[in-house]
Design a protein around this nucleic acid. Sequence first.
DNA 1: GAGTGGTCTAGACCACCCC
DNA 2: GGGTGGTCTAGACCACTCT
Lengths: 240, 240
Amino acid sequence: MSAPSFRPLYDQIKILITQSLIAGEWRPGEAIPSEMELASHFGVSQGTVRKAVDELAGENILVRKQGKGTFVATHDEEHTQLRFLRIHADSGEKEYPRSEVVDCRRDKVAPELARALELRPGAPVYVVKRRLIFSGKPLVFDEIVLSAPLFKGLSAPRLNEFKGSFYSFFEIHYGLRMIRAEERLTAVAAAEEAAQHLDVPLGTPLLCVDRIAFTYGDKPVEWRRGLCHTAGHSYYNELA
Amino acid sequence: MSAPSFRPLYDQIKILITQSLIAGEWRPGEAIPSEMELASHFGVSQGTVRKAVDELAGENILVRKQGKGTFVATHDEEHTQLRFLRIHADSGEKEYPRSEVVDCRRDKVAPELARALELRPGAPVYVVKRRLIFSGKPLVFDEIVLSAPLFKGLSAPRLNEFKGSFYSFFEIHYGLRMIRAEERLTAVAAAEEAAQHLDVPLGTPLLCVDRIAFTYGDKPVEWRRGLCHTAGHSYYNELA
DNA sequence: GAGTGGTCTAGACCACCCC
DNA sequence: GGGTGGTCTAGACCACTCT
């Protein structure tokens, strides 16, 4: 048996709330009903709803604000907008890099990515290439792969016009909320394309960050490979 | 004012439990008193103790085991012993690398590390160099710096004799529990020493992982730099 | 069966936000 | 003042472990 024989009530409530989020019942940034309302709606005590919401808040899916309410998390807020960007200056200063899309075209998904993105082989995708510019210096060259049907009408100008992060763009224009991601890091030597865009000699050691990002229900939506010239910068991580 | 005007009871309980841990009242792996005992000892309800213990368990400082009790977390257990090792094979297979200490000597702390380790300039330290060998291949070359007074009598043979991770060794022989760490990753070209120990050509791109590890009360205890040849392996990270 | 942590409830009161 | 989330309590019952 893989299914647990016992399912706590708060766990079921968690699932029901998640389903409402998937269904788009409440949009990113909006408030969800109060704990008392949810409790009476689901026919449980406030404490049980609390535990469910606590866990969803711990997963950065909801955000609690004392005295105001509980809100659907978004990538559009000040302190969370660069949640997934781990590249920081050694000085510790906060930086808001500028994104510069250099290419955006339709293609067929590469075989090795089809599985990761749960697409059928040869499915249509958008491939976006962009640079991230930190204080005038191009430090990251990203290649991003997105399922074409999910991102109809994507284009370089639309991405470049947008003020905000890619994930904020995905939320606003496609209703897709990225809630978690898995990354795998390696060190590689700069090949021609990356060397050009990052303005470094061929063979320069680069941090290679492969990411798969997921939306509600652990559905993979984005694959990306970031090549990072770690000059005065590093990838920061906390282990607990 | 930086101190919060309001301190929840469970937060105070958390601090009291942490102080008992610092004082060595319960040793790693041992059970702490039951929730009911703690509750009556502190004069609060079981629910309040629960919340305190929940948070400490969330920080991997305590481990709850239903029906048995609550235990002081340790690096010596099966599933947690490689908690801080993020290098994994691309295949996803679990590997237990072999550690091979190649050098261990006393030295004075480097100026740039003194601050990070909260030592006075020139304080005595041990500098340990070791390789991690994955399925016969040396993939990581570590340089580890530890305050000498804290680690009296450290030596290469003692480290090599020990069956288990470094952090498990620290717990058992020095009573120091590593509870969290900060890492900064960059990509570098292999210099001579690393190239030799990792058996790669000079200039091979390597993942450079700088770590500071902390014990109870956020006290820094260890600095280390790991140079990793990411051949068939990568540094895995989850973003949430 | 006795002891542990895990769930759930109902109700009181506090801190914060906004009208 | 009325709404929200945040804390704390007391007590009931469930699930798990060991003896």
